[in-house]
Design a protein around this nucleic acid. Structure first.
Length: 608
RNA sequence: UGGGCUAUGGUGUAAUGGUAACACUGCAGAUUCUGGUCCUGCCUUUCCUGGUUCGAGUCCGGGUAGCCCAACCA
């Protein structure tokens, strides 16, 4: 009976399921949990059916790939649902922030392919926030505390013990107001007074234990000049800025979950202060949190990236080993590849540690469709075609991008080729020749036949003595082979099948010497953040000293012996290239036609 | 040990309470003028434990493990 029941219900449910899936056809792309909420809110006409998000970086450093995830969410959701996303500089702490960073942030967001509805600053709201703070004082919701930070910390309690009220907590509002104004006069020493919200010193949520609203900095702000000496804290700024700006969905990362309740509280207060009409639940910004991006073998925090830069471990914020947007841009990652990666890892509330291999795969996937194929020989050895006339030069055609396809799926040739040169003396990769490679070695060796890409089939003599010349140390200095004149690519008879692979090569007289920079992981451990923290605790050292044990000494290898074809030598910086059979490369900003410099973005998948 | 959050192959992410799937990685093969791409196949999954239910990855209770919170940072 039980069995029967279960079958019945299952079939019934399956039927419903079928009907549902056909009805839901309008939902083409899968939405993450926040996008689902947005869709719901829009459908329910919440916030008047409006969608407005914001991306709120603090301009105190360069954006990194973790920010790219937030950018993709904030700007992406607005774009997907026809809303708008503001760029808001969260500039409430003038001691750390600078215009230089603002420009860099703008550049990086644009490079990723997004645009903001409006660019705003938290400092735009300083006057409103001040007035609101005064209202809070007059309405018994804030007070000036004159204790030292140590005293305040001691009173705050611990997560397991409640805090204690400040002796200043119930001072008259007029007194607090007078002192608050004093705080902005420039005559109060930083640390002498703060403005605190009067909430609940016993709250299990530490953020409710009379959080600080304003502190004295006595320092000019790069945007508001000398107008302010006291500045609002993040918690007293963010939700209010959202409210004043008309943000509907304020999306941030998981570490702000404990601030959520406080955010909601200040939002209801500011509505009261403003005297705005309407149902608060239906007409206010709400905060949503998603998991931030963690990558293995990568250190993401600004503080630590700053140390690497200052200590000269890397050449700067845009060092191709850095996880900054400008760093990975210089490395050769494309915006589409990065966004592709972010799309694959998704948004959840689980604290994930993502595999860097997934990022590399996503970047390869994009670069495969985008990169111009060129030839470069990074570890050259000379190859002489003994039966090719001396002094003769042939012009041959090389396809730029075989993935560029027409409607039938054939590679487009028109406008998708460039010219290369062939001659008697060539360079090939040293590793493409083995004196005794055995049967599985499909490349060049005594008696072996290979094709030179876009050129001829060549063959070495059976006798090792006839196909190589070695120096006194036994190192091969020159390889000899004969070419088959009938086998030129594109000619009739060129389709002859051979056992060997197709090799890339360069005509020695035409090859341009270049510099190739190859990168490896900066860190030798999967989770450098935790490893460094642990080392700091165990050895009592901080900063760079705790980092050194985990730094990869071999993260940058500069190769000045490489050659590249002429076509690639004069390409503009940030051109996406594939050195055929090696990997994806990018033209470095240091590059000149006389001295080309390339960065290795990522290797090709290698199943050798 | 207070509060909050989380747990699905090696990694990440899906799955109105109804046959656990997708991508990456790894392995094998086919195709190839790139040992790339494209294509095919294989490996490996619901933290533990009770309960509710015809039926639980999903809901509830209890464990366990991890993350966040005690900055005059954001």
């Amino acid at each position: 009976m039980r069995e029967l029941h279960s079958v019945f219900f299952r079939n019934f449910a399956a039927e419903i399921q079928d009907n549902k899936t056909t009805d839901m056809e309008d939902v083409k792309e899968s939405l993450n949990f926040i996008e689902k909420r947005i869709k719901e809110d829009l459908a329910n006409g919440r916030n008047g059916g409006r969608l407005q998000t914001r991306f709120p970086p603090e301009p105190n450093g360069y954006l990194h790939i973790g920010h790219a995830k937030a950018i993709a969410m904030d700007f992406g959701a607005a774009r997907k649902f026809g809303g708008t996303c503001y760029l808001r500089m969260d500039d409430t702490n003038p001691q750390k922030e600078d215009m230089e960073y603002v420009r860099a942030i703008e550049k990086d967001i644009k490079w990723l392919g997004f645009e903001w509805g409006k660019e705003v600053y938290a400092s735009d709201y300083f006057q409103d926030l001040w007035d609101f703070a005064e209202w809070c004082i007059l309405n018994d919701r804030a007070y000036v505390d004159e204790q030292t930070s140590e005293e305040i910390a001691a009173q705050k309690g611990t997560p397991t013990e409640p805090g204690q009220n400040s002796p200043y907590r119930n001072r008259p509002a007029e007194e607090s107001l007078r002192l608050f104004r004093e705080m902005n006069s420039g005559n109060v020493e930083p640390g002498k007074m703060i403005l605190r919200a009067k909430i609940d010193m016993a709250s299990p949520n530490m953020h409710f234990r009379d959080p600080i609203m304003y502190r004295v900095l006595n320092m000019p702000h790069w945007r508001t000049g000398n107008k302010w000496n006291a500045y609002p804290m993040y918690d007293f700024t963010h939700g209010q800025s959202d409210y004043l700006e008309g943000v509907t969905h304020s999306i941030c990362t998981l570490e702000f979950v404990p601030h959520h309740e406080l955010y909601d509280l200040f939002v209801t207060w500011i509505k009261e202060w403003r005297g705005d009409e309407g149902d608060i639940e239906d007409n206010r910004p709400r905060q949503f949190e998603f998991n931030k991006l963690n990558l293995n073998y990568t250190l993401m925090s600004k503080r630590n990236l700053l140390i690497l830069t200052n200590e000269g471990v890397v050449s700067g914020w845009d060092d191709p080993r850095m996880p900054t947007i400008c760093g990975i841009r210089r490395r050769g990652y494309s915006p589409e590849g990065i966004l592709n990666f972010i799309d694959k890892i998704g948004y959840t509330t689980y604290d994930a540690l993502n595999d860097i291999k997934l990022l590399e795969a996503a970047v390869r996937e994009d670069l495969n469709t985008r990169a111009t194929r060129v030839s470069a020989v990074v570890d050259p050895v000379r190859l002489v075609i003994t039966n090719y006339p001396e002094g003769k030069v042939e012009e041959l055609t090389a396809v730029n991008n075989p993935e560029l396809r027409d409607a039938e799926g054939n590679t487009v040739t028109e406008g998708n080729t460039h010219t290369i040169h062939f001659s008697r003396e060539l360079y090939i990769e040293r590793e493409d020749f083995m004196e005794d490679g055995g049967k599985k070695f499909m490349r060049l060796g005594p008696g072996k036949e290979v094709r030179l890409k876009n050129a001829y089939i060549i063959k070495c003599d059976e006798d090792p003595g006839k196909c190589i010349r070695k120096d006194a140390d036994g190192r091969i200095v020159e390889i000899y082979a004969e070419y088959d004149p009938e086998s030129k690519s594109g000619m009739p008879g060129a389709d002859r099948k051979i056992k060997g692979k197709t090799l890339h090569w360069l005509s020695a007289p035409h090859a341009v010497p270049c510099e190739v920079r190859e990168y490896d992981q900066l860190w030798t451990c999967e989770n450098p953040r935790d490893a460094i923290k642990q080392y700091e605790d165990e050895h009592g050292v901080r900063g760079i000293e705790a980092m050194r044990p985990f730094l990869n000494p071999d993260s940058l290898r500069i190769n000045r012996n490489a050659f590249v074809e002429e076509y690639a030598a004069s390409l503009p910086e940030l051109t996406y290239l594939q050195f055929q059979r090696i990997g994806y490369y990018n033209v470095d900003p240091d590059s000149t036609p006389e001295h080309p410099v390339f960065n290795k973005t990522v290797g090709l998948r290698d199943s050798k």
